[in-house]
Design a protein around this nucleic acid. Structure first.
Lengths: 139, 139
DNA sequence: AAAAATCCTTAGTAACTTGATAGGCATTAA
DNA sequence: TTAATGCCTATCAAGTTACTAAGGATTTTT
């Protein structure tokens, strides 16, 4: 029941590109160094994002990647779906018995609601928001 | 971003036990056959459920398992936590940057809300509920 | 033209997880 | 005493994860 580093690092890439939106391309090297990640690994993650049309590449020296749309039009759900596959807590919801099927659908819709209503703009701009005191990290 | 067969089959076991609650023990063999699952595999899943105190075993011939509490007091969240670990979309939420941290927390709380408010009674009794026509399984 | 920076592609891999299977011992009701 | 069950440990094939490695293709700057 986890989002892997694919989705998480992919979101990191997209947030970085959102921060630099309108300022020309950002290289993976820059993003990798800023976030202490493997550049080679990020290359593998951005390929599907490019194939899905979420980013555009600019090759050659001083090249890099740019968003194909404004940050307020790209959601976390767009990114997660490309890198993690469809948002669903189980494969083959339709084959489950009605009781369990209903549970999976409610979970799926709850996740979908959050992911599809959070944009890259939200994530890029509000990086310094704080949680309420005493927020529980473990449940 | 998936719940594996551990959590899913575990829930299947618990729903079966909820249906038979008050009628004496149910064997894993019965549950395995009714759901076309491997009895041996279910044995591995029920061990943690027993260790967690959610079910009690009755050994010997005509033995089996029973719930340790009434179905309305055991939630899907109880079962999923035992078999899948803590409910969280990423490991180490607290180490993430604030923007992403907020996103993971909202997802986690959305999932938690559903799982902790769905009891075995809900799942055992409302097995024949139907979804509205045209409900989308893929998103 | 050359060099440097970058994207792009394919392949490999160690560690882990999943979803079992295999074999057998321990306990208890009939 | 026997059959039915729970209980325990080990093994394993396939898939996934999170990389690393190697190098080619493209473009800009010098």
């Amino acid at each position: 029941m986890k989002i892997s580093t694919k989705g998480r690092y992919g979101l990191t890439i997209m947030i970085e590109l959102a921060k630099k939106h309108g300022e020309g391309p950002t290289s993976l090297k820059t993003i990798a160094q800023a976030n202490d990640l493997s550049e080679h690994y990020l290359e593998q993650l951005i390929a599907p994002l490019r194939n899905a049309g979420l980013v555009k590449s600019i090759r050659g020296a001083y090249g890099g990647y740019i968003l194909t749309d404004i940050p307020s039009k790209i959601t976390a759900g767009d990114v997660i779906r490309v890198l993690e596959g469809p948002i669903t807590p189980v494969e083959g919801i339709e084959d489950e018995e009605p009781a369990k099927r209903g549970l999976w659908i409610r979970i799926r819709d709850a996740i979908k609601e959050v992911l599809d209503n959070t944009t890259l703009e939200d994530l890029a701009n509000h990086s310094n928001d704080e949680e309420p005191d005493g927020y529980m990290f473990y449940i």
